[in-house]
Design a protein around this nucleic acid. Structure first.
Lengths: 168, 168
DNA sequence: AAAAATTACTTTAAGCTTAAAACAAATTGA
DNA sequence: TCAATTTGTTTTAAGCTTAAAGTAATTTTT
């Protein structure tokens, strides 16, 4: 094998070096930047225009999709946050009148959380605006871009899950 | 123009309805899911294997790239977090001996934050592992996938910035 | 040079978030 | 059946995060 000290250009280097993963790192940082950027803007607009926090909005969004309500465990899985986190979040939303806790008829440990009528109405108004903000934030992507990004993120999601399951 | 009440299938609907942005919403939620998934796993491994939190790691990563140190404002811009947040984060890292504050020679308001020797050594060890984790998490994407995802996220970043600047 | 505006940072209050420990109810297994 | 395990939730302690208000130093404007 030819192993002489021939200078390599950047392209070649990336291929030749067995353990260089700077490219994946840059990809991850860019993904993180996009999310942080958009999330921050959404958070800011929700606060300014509706006086609501993003976690509260996210929780109400989950409940809006489940007319019969959800348990804390369901919410925890869907929202990918800890159970303990939800206890406090739900408490505050109960206090503000957006959601109610109902004893589960089938499981005495669990309670079912649902939107109140006013909570649902308030959420729907916010959700409409929210959807427009998102459309605007992604507005410079073509339909083709969006489809392709969707596909690649789907693949990324599966890859991450595989890596997580494999180790955990 | 033919404007009769002909039933539309889902495909046609998406095209015909002027104000439906569910597709962008789904894209955003998927982006968020990917980030949350990966971030959670990285956070968990950093804690288990090194007893360090993700924000501490992120801060050290910024300082490692700036041998001369950085001011809080620099860090704030780079990390996209508030100034007040950094004050506490830096305080804790000073206490644990990972970073030092030095009075800025040119600006009496500012202090320069830099890694200590041991802080840098510790970070480098973590960073090596971290890079492998990321490579593994993105491991099922081909080189072509990664390039394409990088490009689309770049476009997304610009689009979001445009939408934010335009309103702000 | 003095006033006005900006910049760098800290403090505060409130809320978010997690991990870990605890508890009770439900399920599984012997 | 009864013990062991799992599941649903809460509590606790610590740390993260933000927005807003405040302080001090610097820069810009007049």
């Amino acid at each position: 094998m030819d192993d002489q000290a021939i200078p390599l250009d950047a392209e070649t280097k990336a291929v030749e070096m067995p353990d260089d993963h700077r490219e994946e790192l840059r990809l991850w940082l860019r993904l993180l930047t996009c999310t942080t950027l958009i999330e921050g803007e959404v958070r800011s607009r929700l606060r300014e225009q509706f006086g609501v926090t993003l976690p509260r909005f996210d929780l109400m969004a989950q409940l809006d999709k489940a007319p019969g309500g959800m348990t804390l465990s369901d919410l925890s899985k869907r929202m990918m946050v800890s159970n303990g986190n939800l206890t406090g979040l739900v408490d505050r939303l109960v206090t503000s009148g957006h959601v109610v806790r109902t004893a589960s008829p089938t499981d005495r440990r669990a309670s079912v959380i649902s939107l109140t009528e006013s909570g649902r109405a308030e959420f729907r108004a916010m959700a409409t605006k929210h959807e427009h903000w998102i459309a605007d934030l992604f507005g410079d992507l073509t339909e083709r871009d969006r489809g392709e990004l969707m596909r690649l993120l789907g693949k990324t999601k599966l890859s991450a899950r595989r890596a997580i399951q494999g180790e955990g």
